[in-house]
Amino acid sequence: METKVEIRNLCKHFGSLVAVDDISFQVNRGEVLGFLGPNGAGKSTTMKMITGFLTPTAGTVTLDGYDIIQQPLAVKQRLGYLPEGAPAYPDMTPAAFLEFVAQIRGLQGADKQRRIGEVVTRVNLSSVLQQPIDTLSKGFKRRVGLAQAILHDPEVLVLDEPTDGLDPNQKHEVRALIKAMAKEKVIILSTHILEEVHAVCTRAIVIANGKIVADGTPAELEAKSHYHNAVTLTVSATAHQATEIRPALLKLSGVAKLELLQEDATHLSYLILPKSDRLIVAEVSQCARENHWKVEELHVEKGRLDEVFRTLTTH
């Protein structure tokens, strides 16, 4: 009974356009699932089907055993949703808006006031509670949307681009908030900011053209990168020494390729790519020691998500 959200063979067609093409996955409590993909890949469409806004062409979405088509209200009660762009009634104040959502969520009396109070503190809304939402900055609007989504302390939280258009501080706050809630909830969020995956997600699904092209932890995704386990080496040496250093590095058994990062009068810097799945840092450092290079920097790359992302989503 740990599986909270189960998506099975989900499809969505708009006329002849196939927006989502046979997607299946499960998300458990405690997981923060990042939905990655280029614009138009089907991220938002999938989220709209999970939240019951769109009816799937085929396939099922179940939440805690409840089917979104058969028992939409049971699902919607357990779900908090921040739609793309955080829509809210522009002429209302955040106070009135949250009051409305609380009532629709069935919260009443002291309990309602307590929840609204908690959420307002949690997303830092108290300074703008009585201003029309229309007049708020993008960051505050986003927070109103978040507040609305977490108001009833839902088991499942679906956030469509929760940090889009926020400044770095606000992004940090939102991510901290997501992390703080992660333990007791299922959180599904979409993003195209790759650093966000590192910052908050325990798992990432990459979709392209409506299909899942990768599903794994951020570290697993990074391991698909050419740069996974690559070594950056910077030595203090003059440019003419490069002719000795380069061949020495290329001779090492695990090294596939050398990328030049910088060669000037005082520093030589290389990115050394390993042959498939080899760990070469030991070899490289031994080589440096034997040749008495003055090593200034030596570190292992984990991999580059943006590169993996590009390889997976372009053909």
Partner: peptide, 14 residues
């Protein structure tokens, strides 16, 4: 137009 339809119809109302 404002997108609130998505909000309204994903609240637990029919």
């Amino acid at each position: 137009k404002s997108g609130t339809i998505e909000l309204l119809l994903t609240l637990p109302v029919t």
